[in-house]
Design a protein around this nucleic acid. Structure first.
Lengths: 235, 235
DNA sequence: CGCACAGTTGACGCACATCAACCTGGGTGG
DNA sequence: CCACCCAGGTTGATGTGCGTCAACTGTGCG
């Protein structure tokens, strides 16, 4: 059974191609992480950055009261811990949602930022800026959007990010997150995520089975979400 | 009547001193903005960046449903629209909370990032990284903290940012935001902000009058908020 | 077979939103 | 100098979106 529209190896080739001027050449080693394991822990002093090659990871923080919030979701081509490496210390953790393959990049390649290849610098900078734009948009969603809109918005955003990688076609893609993860992404309880997903399904906007999510009517879902992709700066 | 522990002119001198290696020398012109006016509007293509010299500004977004979320609060020494200038287009607006003095910096000074003075580049980068860290922390707060904790956390954060500028002493500083602003910062209704502020006041943790906020017991407020300043990377 | 973990369902509670007044002080015009 | 206005702040009554608790189902795996 194929678990994505195009195979993972195809995606990797494609990735390094569209992003050729980039960070891919800085990878010195590949490493596989189990689903549900941590790539990086809060307060770690990282000596390598991790470029995501296969699977999905996320950044998260755990508070004193035990609650967890996911602050970013990473797709292949993203650097999981860019800010942590640039600052020299992590103020968040990075977890693997699915089994993942990560490429290690020596921290020095990134921290000697102003001395490196301008193309690489530009690439890193644009990743940084996009990360921040997404974080801002999530913050706006938490303040101003209902559970339903937030879920819809997240699915629209995720699809939009996967599409240029060839990992989403006709609104269909792998959603490697459990409802427990979704709750931590959306700032909701697990129970409410469950009910909200059912509501969207019943309304006929999405379908979901065996890890594959299908957006049945993309413009309609984007309208519900109030999704405007401008902040993502996709080509 | 003095409206801050040390005068504004003193603060300006101090600011350009502690940040001497920096962005201050790139200012080509100063401009005053009225309280409640906009410095920058969403979708604008900025040709100058604005360094905040006096007063408080904030970044915000307005959604289709009319709701507004403030995504960042700026203090003197911050660049209001750094990401917008670097990306070439704003995906947020910037408003003045109080009357403000801003220094204009030609966009080219910032976008020619990799070709400029490494010290300036480093400074810009660190501002960018801090902005993102704060945004992440706000996001975590929205997902995991109660209204009371969020308010307390914001006050702790604001004080911590003002202190090295000499604009907060003994837990006392100017809070130039109305409760309407606070609601948009915290993602709460105005009424609930009002009640929450009263609750903190009644508990004896803060006092507030004539725009001056005093944190009466800093460690206690930080404990309530679950505030850990690590993400701010203050000296 | 039994355990663990993701998903699901119902009953109930609460933190917050909403609506609607009303108060207050500073500014403005007659 | 008063009359008015208006923005910011305050208060009470009521509503609701989402959280919490608790139980049950299905499924893959040792």
């Amino acid at each position: 059974m194929r678990d994505s529209p195009i195979s993972k190896t195809e995606t990797r080739t494609w990735l390094s191609h569209v992003d050729a001027e980039s960070i891919f050449s800085a990878v010195v080693r590949e490493k596989t992480f189990q689903a549900r394991s941590d790539v990086l822990r809060q307060k770690d002093v990282p000596d390598v950055a991790h470029l995501l090659l296969e699977g999905n990871t996320f950044r998260y923080k755990i508070l004193g009261n035990g609650r967890r919030q996911i602050t970013a979701v990473l797709v292949p081509g993203d650097v999981c811990d860019l800010e942590a490496v640039m600052r020299g210390q992590a103020d968040y953790s990075v977890g693997a949602a699915t089994t993942c393959v990560l490429g290690e990049i020596p921290a020095a390649r990134i921290t000697n930022f102003t001395k490196i290849d301008p193309l690489l610098a530009k690439n890193i900078l644009s990743k940084l800026l996009r990360d921040e734009a997404i974080c801002r948009e999530w913050l706006v969603g938490m303040g101003c959007r209902s559970a339903l809109q937030r879920l819809a918005h997240f699915l629209c955003e995720f699809r939009t990010r996967l599409e240029p990688l060839g990992m989403a076609q006709n609104g269909e893609f792998q959603l490697g997150f459990t409802q427990v993860d979704m709750a931590a992404i959306l700032g909701l309880s697990i129970v409410h995520v469950n009910r909200t997903m059912q509501e969207i399904r019943r309304s006929g906007l999405i379908a979901f089975s065996a890890g594959t999510l299908t957006i049945l009517d993309i413009p309609a879902l984007e309208a519900v979400a109030g999704f405007d992709p401008a902040y993502l700066r996709m080509p």
